[in-house]
Design a protein around this nucleic acid. Structure first.
Lengths: 169, 169, 169, 169
DNA sequence: AATGAATGAGCGTTCATTCAT
DNA sequence: CATGAATGAACGCTCATTCAT
């Protein structure tokens, strides 16, 4: 309802309103940039978490994905709200090339090829898991002030395992 | 980005701008009313679909849920976009009492009690499935003009079964 | 600040909004009509009060004028406010032909001619007395809920006598 | 009838509509500010005119009051109209603490105490004189394009003297 | 490069007026 | 005659964007 105004953004960044237009062409531009940064950083931390798993430990990778995803979203809650609620995708295209989903889709496909689990349509399942994660975090933030991060991660891991056809323990 | 203006809404409804205020107190009021109607109708159609299943056929109920959910969202795509993107919940509370999620949560709990499947935290899983569904439909609409409804339903059913710990066939 | 709306007027008169336009051409029209009625009735009651004085009793006439003026305004306080505050004279002309002032001006001129008192410019003095009266009543209504009508009348009479050059007792 | 709109005000001041809101919080805010300024400046010029009289010259002070009052109103005729007709006092209170009336009331009381004249209720007489002045100027402006300032002042002085019980020459 | 006062298009809302019933 | 639902011009106000300093 209440939209974030340029003034709030520039006040928060401790620059003058005009300064802003030296770097961005428009309000949408900055929202797009913020979103890109948020998404890139989240992807980075997901990749790092996964990279720490042993090459063949597919379940561990998925477990790491879920943990990093929940953590990344929770840590950037404020930014996330500005960026994802403020910004109504200018065109559906822009929305489509979500690199988090693309990366997860690859992971699911690779695990499937390695017979670690069974996923018929990796893109579909990636979409599903990503938006499930998204909704879970959003709901948790909306309902509770202090979020039980550990519990959230555990539950997301369980449901993620199940979603790819693994036993959940 | 471009918010839907009163003028767009009234033009779409082929009434004058003032007419609108005979029925609603404010812009938020319409959006709220539209959202309520959309959600109520979706819940209605989900309940009907589930009601047609045999009493003990829990898997059938979940299957029906997924099919009705996808169909309901796809059928009301335009309305859905206006309502859910335009209207940023006035308070997180309002967002929380999503009756679709509450209903699904009950279904999952009941099936669990009946030992039809195994779900530790029905609310969590309901949140997850609902937002997964939401994201799937949104993504499908954003990417393709014509959506393969049948395929979408089948895949959502599979992943829903898995999420509650059932075999997916 | 808060203007009286057509709806308030028609609600108060227990007729439909449309009915109103059978009798008046516009909102200004009704305000004008209300004002005319108020002014005509006030003039009527002033004339009656003066008519009760003896032909030669000029001081009595002025005394009667002051009493009737205060009373007329106080009795119609609500109407007066609507009419005089709501309605910003459409043209200065309309405002000019205030029949109360014209009448008082005649009275002052006549008394002057009869050597009852001494007024060089009856119109000026009439303007002055009328607006003084107006302000006094307005101020009294604004400040007190219950107005001491008798005291107001007595004071207005005194100052009116003085204004025309009579001793004030 | 036709209220002065923000657009008229900003057009008149040769600034954009938005500029206005850098200085004032709302439309009422300007009107209030304009009114305050007008009233303060009028009081200032009245005080200056009175200050030039000899300490004991009460009649001179009242004479100065009338002259400064007429002049002040005539000089600010346009502003006066906007401010006093546009703005219907948000609460009757605000209207009551008219500093011009309060100041005149003090003057009348002081002169009375000094036996320069005789006024039973200074506040009443101040109200009366102020509104008489107000009406005189308003009427003069409405009727004539060029106002005979000198004549107006002379007549107001005469009637003011009389109102406080002085001989009018 | 950085600023922030100034801008004005566009918003949500009101309400005097119309007209089909 | 009477009605009141429908209208749309016009309002006060906001805020993304510009540009002189």
């Amino acid at each position: 309802m209440e939209a974030t105004s340029i003034e709030q953004i520039t006040d928060g960044a401790d620059v003058a309103k005009g300064t802003y237009y030296l770097h961005f062409a428009s309000k949408d531009d900055v929202l797009l940039a913020l979103r890109d940064r948020f998404v890139r950083e989240l992807l980075e931390s997901i990749k790092n978490a996964i990279g720490e798993q042993r090459e063949k430990d597919w379940k561990g990778k998925l477990r790491a994905w879920a943990a990093a995803g929940i953590s990344g979203y929770l840590d950037a809650a404020a930014l996330h709200n500005i960026v994802f609620y403020e910004f109504q995708a200018p065109s559906p295209k822009k929305d489509g090339d979500n690199i988090i989903i693309a990366h997860l889709s690859e992971l699911l496909g690779a695990g499937s090829a390695a017979r670690a689990w069974s996923v018929d349509d990796p893109r579909f399942t990636a979409d599903f898991l990503f938006h499930g994660l998204h909704g879970i975090v959003h709901g948790a933030l909306a309902k509770q002030k202090r979020v039980a991060r550990g519990a959230l991660i555990r539950k997301l891991q369980q449901v993620s395992f199940r979603a790819v056809g693994l036993r959940s323990n």
